[in-house]
Amino acid sequence: MNIFRLAGDMTHLASVLVLLLKIHTIKSCAGISLKTQELYALVFATRYLDIFTNYISFYNTIMKLIFLGSSFSIVWYIKRHKIVHRSYDKDQDTFRHWFIVLPCLVLALLINERFTFKEVMWTFSLYLEAVAILPQLVLLQRTRNIDNLTGQYVFLLGAYRALYILNWIYRYFTEDHYIHWITWIAGLVQTLLYADFFYYYFQSWKNNAKLELPA
């Protein structure tokens, strides 16, 4: 494991912790898209189908369990927790799941490395993760007052993706036969979706102003 990969995983972990902190401690999910969280739960459920059959490392299994457990518990909190649910911006979070899930499923059935159930599900999870942030970005744009934790959460998610690209570049030059077009293109698309957000995030940071995305 190289430093970029580890930093990427830790940034991903930090993003989840920031979100759990907001939800568990502050008991608020204001500005957080339930749609995006449900899509992430689906991403991990379909990607980690081999969690108990294909052992890679202790680190790998633990991280998978954390991402599975946290994504489903976040969805549970927003939907079922009495106090947290009250802060959910239901009327603003209007993105339709199917507009995202169906195209990803069709694409995974058409473009994959092997036509087996597990492989198609794994590819589907890559395509889905690439666009799962869209409902969250739309909600951010509609939110007039983006609080610090929500801004940090999205920033950490974007940073995690950028670090994974550096990890792929590093692995490409240091390992033999390390070419994964599907993973790379999906990952690149996913990172590009954050470009706009990054721009305004750094602007607000530089000017010491509140983060606000233009409508």
């Binding site: 990969r5 294909n54 490392s57 998978k64 490395e113 597990k118 390992e175 390390y178």
Partner: peptide, 10 residues
Amino acid sequence: SSDKDVKDEL
């Protein structure tokens, strides 16, 4: 599918 090195990523 499990023989691919990319599968060690999360």
